[in-house]
């Protein structure tokens, strides 16, 4: 198959997503700006509840009630603003233009149908002319992920293990050759070794097909190996975003530092690994004014209680923090908006 090797860029601007709760509509994602450079893999990390899945669903305009996108845009090259898409146009975008691996990919299959039958449903839904070729591609993808493709296509969900189902979910996201791929915790049901293998395969396919990929994970260590860029989310904000080596090698935001310190593999010393103090915020406990992280921050200022820090370029990345950073290096790339 001939592939035109220009990956689309993705520009998220001012994105705010609110959930309707008993105490009114509360933002799970607040005014997020995030640019995915064409052809890159961007990792998104952050504790559970920081708004990662909500952000990911927004990229397909698929935030589920009681949530809704209340402001902002998600511009994808060649598609326009996804937030404005409706009906049939939106349906054709999902799956075909933007591939999505569901957070609970183990449960993303119809229990009554074989994987192969569901693959054909997918092909027919998107008017794929050559269904035989689609099946061949699916088999090949499954084979690359270490499974017997023909057998998997003949199986139903209950005949597959959690890890196998998750890989089937990844296959569904890649098989239609979507150029933008969003993976929400794609490897949680897998053991460490398979996890590394799958991420490597995602990287390979990404490079071969010139994709623009967003990978969400709460495993900072795993994402370090595959991502080009890293976005750190906290309380519905992207608090730090930049090249993965720089963000992990010299974190600017105190939250990023805390996350890294909590991981033995990255902090380099088992004895030094230290869990982040306090609890991740929920929609109801987020402070209404000031910095959302201030209550858990080791060095918060008076200013942090009153003014919300605006993301600003510094040290080759964007950081949303009032504290003067430890690494005063001028910005090298300017796409970290």
């Amino acid at each position: 198959m001939e592939r035109h090797l220009t990956a689309p860029g993705v520009r998220i601007r001012g994105l705010t997503v609110v959930y309707n709760t008993p105490s009114g509509e509360l933002p799970a994602v607040s005014g997020v700006d995030l640019t995915l450079a064409p052809g890159t893999i961007t990792g998104v990390v952050g504790e559970s509840g920081s708004g990662k899945s909500t952000l990911a669903l927004s990229m397909l305009n698929a935030v589920q009630p009681p949530g809704r996108i209340s402001a902002g845009s998600v511009e994808i090259d060649g598609l326009g603003d996804v937030v404005r898409l409706r009906g049939e146009e939106l349906r054709r975008t999902r799956g075909r233009k933007v591939g999505y691996v569901f957070q609970a990919a183990q449960n993303s299959l119809n229990p009554l149908k074989t994987i192969g039958a569901q693959l054909l449903d997918l092909g027919r839904s998107h008017d794929v002319g050559d269904l035989r070729a689609l099946v061949r591609d699916a088999r090949e993808l499954l084979g690359r992920m270490g499974m017997d493709g023909a057998r998997v296509l003949d199986s139903r969900q209950h005949e597959l293990s959690g890890g196998m189902r998750q890989r089937v979910g990844i296959m569904f996201a890649l098989v239609l050759d979507a150029r933008v791929v969003v993976l929400d915790e794609p490897t949680t049901a897998l053991d460490m070794i398979t996890q590394a293998t799958i991420l490597r395969i995602i990287r390979e396919v990404h490079d071969e097909r010139a994709l623009t990929t967003l990978v969400i994970t709460h495993d900072v260590g795993a994402v370090a190996e595959v991502a080009d860029d890293l976005a750190v989310m906290y309380g519905g904000r992207v608090v730090e975003h930049g090249p993965v080596a720089e963000v992990l090698g010299a974190p600017e935001h105190p939250y990023t530092r805390g996350l890294i310190r909590a991981i033995p593999r990255l902090s380099g010393d088992l004895g030094l690994a230290r869990a982040l103090p306090g609890r991740p915020p929920t929609l109801g406990t987020l402070p209404a004014a000031g910095c959302v992280f201030r209550e858990r921050c080791e060095s918060s200022l008076d200013l942090c209680r009153t003014a919300e820090p605006v993301p600003a370029a510094r040290a080759g990345r964007t950081v949303a923090c009032h504290l003067p950073g430890p690494h005063a290096v001028p910005v090298k790339r300017k796409e970290y908006a």
Binding site: A62, A105, N107, L112, K113
Partner: peptide
Amino acid sequence: DDFILAAELRGLRRGIVFRYLARN
């Protein structure tokens, strides 16, 4: 159930999603 949302996120036709729903 997650698989219905997953089917929608894969852009399956409404009729097909409805069949998934009704049969289950």
